[in-house]
C-alpha cells in the first residue's frame, strides 16, 4: 500500500467514524427528547389541575380521575390533613402543590419537596421561598433527562405559595425540569381549553373570592363529567392569616368541597343522586 493510499483510506475511515459518532449523539438526544415528550403526553391525559393567582391568595383545583365504580373510596371520604391526598398536597406551611401525571412518581416528588423544605428550615430557620422549592424539584427532574438508563419523572406540578420576598406566587414545572411563573394556568387533560377560558376571564388584581368562582367555573366547563362533586374534585386555597400574618393553606375536605360547589350553584342535582341510588 502506497503512502498516498494509506493516507486516503485513513481519511475515509476517519470520516466514517466521525459520522457514526454524530449519529450516536443524535440518537441519544432523540431518545431523551421522545422519553420526555412521552412523559408530557402522559400528563396531558391526566386529571386537570388548575391554579389562579389572586392579589390576596392563590387558588388550586384538581380533577380526580375515578377509575371505576368498584374502586373503594370509603377511605378517602374523611381526608387526611385536609384533602383526600390524591392530587393536592401540602409541601410546607407556605406551599401547596397540585400534581398531574404518574401518581407513584408524584408521591416520590412530594416526599422530596417536603424534605427539601424541612432542610431549608433547619439551616435558615425560615420557610423556604417558593421559587427556591420549585428550583430544588426542577434540579432533580432535570437530572433524569441527562443520564442514560433512567426515565424522567412523569409529573407536572403547580406550586401555590407565599413568601415575604415575592408575596403570592404560582409556578408550573414539567418533566424536563423547566419551570415558569403564572397568573393563571392549567395542566393535565383539556389544558388548552382551560387556558383559553382563563385568558378570557382572568383580571389583574382579582380577589381570592373571585378567583375561587373563576376556578370552579372553568373546572366545571373543562371536566369530562357534567356534574361536579367531592369524589371528582379537590380544592385548596392559600392566603395570609390577617392576625398572625403567616401563610394559611386550606385544603378542602370532601364535605367542604360539596358545600362550596353548592354555594356556587355547581353541585350535582338531586335527580342525579336519585339515579345513582336507583
Amino acid at each position: 500500500m502506497s503512502a498516498f493510499e494509506f493516507a486516503n483510506q485513513s481519511t475515509v475511515q476517519g470520516d466514517y467514524t466521525k459520522v457514526s459518532c454524530c449519529r450516536v449523539v443524535l440518537r441519544f438526544q432523540w431518545v431523551f427528547t421522545i422519553v420526555v415528550e412521552y412523559a408530557m403526553e402522559a400528563i396531558s391525559h391526566a386529571g386537570t389541575v388548575l391554579g389562579v393567582l389572586a392579589k390576596d391568595g392563590v387558588v388550586l383545583a384538581a380533577e380526580k380521575k375515578v377509575t371505576g365504580k368498584l374502586l373503594d373510596l370509603s377511605g378517602t371520604k374523611e381526608g387526611g390533613y385536609g384533602g383526600s391526598g390524591e392530587k393536592i398536597f401540602l409541601l410546607n406551611s407556605n406551599v401547596i402543590a397540585g400534581v398531574a401525571g404518574i401518581t407513584a412518581d408524584a408521591n416520590s416528588l412530594v416526599n422530596y419537596a417536603r424534605t427539601a423544605a424541612q432542610r431549608h428550615l433547619y439551616s435558615y430557620n425560615e420557610d423556604i421561598p417558593v421559587e427556591l422549592l420549585t428550583q430544588r424539584l426542577c434540579d432533580l427532574k432535570q437530572g433524569y433527562t441527562q443520564y442514560g438508563g433512567l426515565r424522567p419523572f412523569g409529573v407536572s406540578l403547580l406550586y401555590a405559595g407565599y413568601d415575604p420576598h415575592c408575596q403570592f406566587q404560582l409556578y408550573h414545572s414539567d418533566p424536563s425540569g423547566n419551570y415558569s411563573g403564572w397568573k393563571a394556568t392549567c395542566i393535565g387533560a383539556n389544558n388548552g381549553t382551560a387556558q383559553s377560558l382563563l385568558k378570557q376571564d382572568y383580571k389583574d388584581e382579582i380577589s381570592v373570592e373571585d378567583a375561587v368562582a373563576l376556578v370552579l367555573r372553568v373546572m366545571s366547563k373543562t371536566m369530562d363529567s357534567t356534574t361536579l362533586g367531592s369524589e371528582k374534585l379537590e380544592f385548596a386555597t392559600l392566603t395570609v392569616d390577617p392576625v398572625t400574618k403567616k401563610p394559611k393553606s386550606k385544603i378542602y375536605r370532601p364535605a367542604e368541597v360539596d358545600a362550596l360547589l353548592k354555594k356556587h350553584d355547581l353541585a350535582k342535582k338531586d335527580e342525579d343522586a336519585e339515579m345513582k341510588t336507583a
Binding site: 433547619y122 439551616s123 435558615y124 430557620n125 425560615e126 421561598p129 421559587e131 427556591l132 415575604p164 420576598h165
Partner: peptide, 17 residues
C-alpha cells in the same frame, strides 16, 4: 443562587448553625 439576599434572621440562624 437564590437571586435575593438572605434576610438578617435567616442569615443569623445559618451563621449560628
Amino acid at each position: 443562587r437564590n437571586t435575593y439576599p438572605l434576610p438578617p434572621p435567616s442569615a443569623a440562624s445559618w451563621i449560628r448553625r
